Simulated scan of single mutants.
Amino acid sequence: MTCDQAAQAVAEGKELTCEELDQANKDARKNELDNDNTPEGFALTTAVGTNKNGVSGFMKGVSSGDAPKKEFKNGYAPAVKAKTRPDCSGAGGYDAQRKNDSETKVLDPFMRSAGSGGSVTMKVYHRSVAGGVTTEDEMPCISCRKSICGAEKCGITVTLCNKNNEKVKAADMCDDGKPKGTGSTSDPLWTNAGFA
């Protein structure tokens, strides 16, 4: 399923599976990103959001604003301009270096516009490079976990698709708007849930 097909399916009222969000994520990485402007390490999220009024939309976010090709830029969530998290999420400041990660780019405007209620199902792809070793996984960083759990605190039901395209309820990974676990990229709670 391409991103265009995913957007069309959602517009027609279809609920996308994790497999379909994964296919759209792969399509975005293959066809919509400019290889010359995409850093070695980045994250890309494909998602379906339904606001409290039942209106659904297909969403995409990428951690590097320069990564999408010119003709696709408008289809990606914009940079987060706010310095603080939405009030409903428990507020607090964003980490200035992480507030434009793909998950936060998708969730922040949704929290601010949807208020309390709605749902988001998201597939995250994360690629990091350290010591010449490239790692690909679905593991949200700790800052993004805070955004995910903040959305839950806003009354938005967040479902994450793990590496096996199984649905994981964010509510099981959060406690009162804060992520459970150690916060590390090898956190056993998140690793055992299939994100790495």
Rank of each mutant, 00 (worst) to 15 (best):
T2M: 13
D4G: 15
E12F: 11
C18L: 06
E19A: 15
N25A: 15
D27W: 09
D27N: 14
D34N: 07
D34F: 05
N37C: 07
T38N: 07
P39H: 10
G41H: 06
G41S: 15
F42G: 07
A47D: 10
G49D: 04
N51V: 07
G54V: 07
K60C: 08
G61S: 11
S64I: 14
D66M: 12
A67P: 06
P68A: 04
K70P: 03
E71M: 05
E71F: 03
A82S: 15
K83L: 15
K83C: 14
T84L: 12
A91I: 03
G92H: 00
Y94C: 08
Q97E: 12
E103F: 10
V106Y: 04
A114I: 00
G115E: 00
S116H: 05
S119E: 06
V124P: 11
V124G: 09
H126P: 00
H126S: 15
H126R: 15
H126D: 14
R127S: 15
S128N: 14
T135C: 07
P140A: 10
P140R: 05
S143N: 14
R145Y: 01
R145F: 02
I148T: 11
C149K: 00
G150C: 01
G155T: 03
G155I: 02
T159I: 10
T159H: 05
K163C: 01
N165Y: 11
V168Q: 09
A170V: 01
C174L: 01
G183Q: 10
G183D: 10
S186M: 09
D187P: 07
L189M: 12
G194T: 06
